[in-house]
């Protein structure tokens, strides 16, 4: 991004975020998003003005607790239903290209 742009984001950050989000953005998209998101972030950053430490967080609009299900087996999908949407399968398993990274 050019230095004249006071965006809170730069292209390197957007590229990093795109990698975290697993989207192969083109350089043009990254450039465009950097500007757009900069504007959006500036306008939404004002939430911190009123979010003082004494204010608790709300993660659910209607607060419930202890919502559980009994440990009783229910209906499962058939193998064909399970694999019905698979872009690629091998027998009864989903097939994916070789994996670069490792299990977490």
């Amino acid at each position: 991004m050019s230095e004249s742009n006071p965006s809170p984001l730069d292209v390197a950050q957007v590229a990093h975020l795109a990698n975290l989000a697993r989207i192969a953005l083109t350089p043009e998209e990254i450039e465009k998003l950097t500007g757009e998101l900069g504007v959006i972030i500036e306008s939404i950053a004002k939430v911190s003005e009123v979010a003082t430490p004494d204010v608790p967080s709300t993660s659910h609009p209607i607060r419930l607790t202890n919502v559980f299900r009994p440990d009783v087996p229910g209906e499962t999908l058939t193998v064909e239903e399970a694999l019905s949407g698979a872009p690629e399968r091998d027998g009864d398993r989903f097939k994916v290209p070789a994996i670069l990274g490792e299990e977490q």
Binding site: F68, R69, D71, G74, T76, L77, V79, A82, G85
Partner: peptide, 23 residues
């Protein structure tokens, strides 16, 4: 056998939702 012990939740199908097992 592969993929015989699954529901939409296990496959993360769009729209599926988790519910906690009390046990």
């Amino acid at each position: 056998e592969p993929n015989t012990m699954v529901t939409p939740v296990c496959l993360g199908l769009p729209g599926s939702l988790p519910v906690v097992n009390e046990q």
